[in-house]
Nucleic acid binder design. Structure first.
Lengths: 155, 155
DNA sequence: ATGAGTGCAAAGGCTTTGCATTAGG
DNA sequence: CCTAATGCAAAGCCTTTGCACTCAT
């Protein structure tokens, strides 16, 4: 699988559940209703969600179960924990599902939106990062790129 | 001041203290010994430091004072709080002092190193980000770029 | 039946805050 | 002198963990 995957390459919305079920099965985990609800919530959003947002999108899921299930889903490789500012951790579906993208963070309200940049720039950047990483003795796994600014409603 | 500042443009090591004193004075804050110690610790490092690291580099500074002083220094615009993984927050001197750079994060041990990428790539990237940000209704302030990988000692 | 999953509540760990004391201008 | 800064300890807040109960296989 290519490092830089386009939105078009990502798993179709209808197949997300099946994909997740497979990945969970691979590590011997069940695809319970609570996990289904979480995946559905993440799948329906076009941005990483916080725990409070996930809880309000599901019904009757305990906070501790949300944390635990997200951890399981992360180990299964279908969920990624996104660190933006101090506040809460946010979660999104993996790049295999969502496609490669970056985040735009509002420095005022903390709002986070997904963004994509042109492929050629992505490629050039990744190549340059690989070089500097190697030079510093790092084995690069991936890169993280955020745009920090002020969102529409905060201006 | 240019958005992309080279290391060569950054404030000379000897002038850091003076620069900080000025910035603190601008917001009516004193340049106390505790703050001098913190700035000296950050100034001597080529990477962002965690609170424990800062505390061990200073003598007799209370943890609460470290947090409070770093907050003041951040408000003065001379210190930046760096969010890498979950762990601890890390702090570094502002880009006006250190020059524009990015971070390489070890996903195993959490080690963070400063890295710089070629200017032309930086410029191209920033331009592209400005476009996508505007398209999404964001007023871009700056970007954040991390290389995630495995460091020399963890391989 | 039998172990994974869940809910509730308590504990953890980094960070912030209250308050009396000390020090800088 | 007088306000800002500091230390110590307590409180906060997100997150993790313990434990008994429930559900699916």
């Amino acid at each position: 699988m290519a490092t830089h995957q386009h939105a078009a390459d990502s798993v179709a919305a209808d197949d997300v559940a099946h994909h997740v079920a497979t990945k969970l099965a691979e590590i011997g985990q069940r695809f319970t209703s609570g996990r289904r609800d979480i995946v559905a919530a993440l799948s329906g959003a076009d941005r990483p969600l916080s725990i409070p947002e996930i809880l309000s999108s599901t019904s009757g899921l305990a906070q501790s179960s949300a944390y635990r299930n997200l951890s399981v889903l992360e180990n299964a490789g279908v969920v990624i924990r996104v660190i933006t500012t101090d506040e809460w951790a946010r979660y999104e579906l993996s790049e295999a599902i969502m496609g490669h993208h970056h985040h735009m963070v509002c420095s005022v309200c903390g709002f986070v939106a997904d963004v994509r940049i042109p492929d050629d720039i992505e490629h050039t950047l990744d190549e340059a990062l690989g070089v500097v990483a190697q030079r510093a003795g790092f084995a690069m796994a991936h890169h993280r790129l955020d745009v920090v600014g002020v969102c529409k409603s905060c201006r």
